[in-house]
Amino acid sequence: MSKIAFVFPGQGTQFVGMGKDIYENNEIARKEFDNIFETLSFDLKEAMFNGPEDLLKKTKYTQPAIVAMSLVLEKLVREKGIKPEFVAGHSVGEYAAMGSAGFLTISEAVRLTSFRGEVMNEIAESVNGGMAAIIGMDSDTIIEVLKEIDGVVEAVNFNEPKQTVIAGEKSAIEKACELLKERGARRAMPLAVSGPFHSSLMKPAGEKLREEAEKFNFKEAEVKLVANTTAEFLTKPEEIKNEIYSQSFGPVKWVDTIKKLKENGVDTIYEIGPGKVLAGLIKKIDKEINVINVNSVEDVNNL
């Protein structure tokens, strides 16, 4: 029995003008977007539709922008009669997955994401950290090599079998990149991000997020969510609150997430939101899964 999953992208997929075509050409989308924009204390609409790019790149804007666009598109996909058995999201995409699963309403999910963006930014500015992508080496080898480095540096995003992102202190990242290349990594590239996301240095953000999450009315999920940190199914409010806390300084186990979906009968995945990053990763993890991209009003109309 073939099953469907929805997956949602993370940071780095944003672009100026994101969501504008959907807003201008679909009545349902316009209402959803306006509802989201009204609940925020800053002008997300202007940042998304008109930029400038430097503004949209700020975590405070980037994260809610991606989740807002993803969840409005998700609603339009459901309007076509397409419903998922499972959902998952990559990093901040997990907040879109929460909305899709029914843990929170669309505007609640975006509001919580907006808080996440602010708190992540605040903690990132207080630590001198960064991230780097390691290409052409398996994650087990990377984890072993990192044990030899002084300072905080951890494998945090397990994106596909030969691409893992590391995060930690800047000096430790530099040393790790050199050593990993010496040991056979094809490339070790520092990423243009403002902090060591998903590493233990971000734990103070987790504490603040845990407090904030208590102000929201989480419901039992209608659809199973595959958690970033464990690749296990979550359906209960307490489980998702624990994940919100852990995920801010814990790993994104994307390879295990896709394997979990496959094991449970998923053969079609809809990547919903800006960009096509996840489709590329999924193909590297499992070529048999059919991936359908939905990132514009045209994509929705073509479903």
Rank of each mutant, 00 (worst) to 15 (best):
R210Q: 13
K219T: 02
K276A: 13
I269Q: 13
I258Q: 04
E239P: 02
T230G: 00
K259N: 15
I258V: 15
V277M: 03
A227H: 02
S246Y: 08
V252L: 08
D267H: 13
K262L: 12
K284P: 02
A279E: 15
V226Q: 05
A231R: 01
T229E: 02
K260F: 07
E211P: 11
S248C: 15
T257N: 09
A227Y: 00
A227P: 02
K219F: 08
P237L: 00
L281T: 01
F218E: 03
I282M: 07
N228Q: 07
N242W: 02
G273S: 07
F233Q: 03
T235I: 11
L225T: 06
Y270R: 10
Y245L: 12
I282F: 01
G275S: 08
K236V: 05
I244G: 06
K283P: 07
Y245R: 11
V255M: 10
K262P: 13
Y245T: 03
I258T: 08
E232C: 05
F249R: 14
L261M: 15
Y270Q: 14
F249Y: 15
V226G: 00
V255G: 06
K276H: 10
P251F: 02
K241C: 07
E214M: 09
K219I: 03
F218V: 03
P274T: 05
L278F: 04
K219N: 14
I269R: 07
A231E: 05
T268V: 15
P274Y: 00
K253S: 01
K276M: 11
K276N: 11
A227S: 15
I285A: 05
T229D: 03
V277P: 00
W254H: 08
G273F: 06
T268C: 15
K224F: 12
V277I: 09
I240L: 02
K283L: 04
G273T: 06
Q247E: 13
L225W: 04
F233T: 02
G250W: 10
V252P: 08
K260A: 14
Y270D: 15
I272W: 13
A227L: 01
E243S: 02
I258C: 07
P237E: 05
N264P: 11
S246C: 04
E243M: 03
I244K: 04
P237I: 01
A213E: 01
K224A: 13
T268S: 15
I240E: 02
V226F: 04
I272G: 10
N217T: 08
K253M: 13
K259F: 03
Y270N: 14
V255H: 05
T235Q: 11
T229H: 00
V226E: 06
I269Y: 08
K219Q: 13
A213H: 04
K262G: 10
K259G: 11
V223Y: 12
T268Q: 15
K283D: 06
N217K: 13
R210V: 00
N228T: 03
V252H: 07
I244P: 05
I244A: 06
K276I: 10
P251A: 12
N228Y: 03
A213F: 04
K241L: 06
E239G: 01
P237A: 05
S246G: 10
G280T: 05
E238G: 00
I244N: 01
P251E: 14
P251K: 10
T229R: 02
T230N: 00
W254Q: 12
Q247W: 02
E271D: 12
S248Y: 08
L225H: 03
E263Q: 14
N242D: 10
G250H: 06
G250S: 09
F216G: 02
K284I: 04
K224Y: 11
K262F: 12
K260W: 06
A279Y: 05
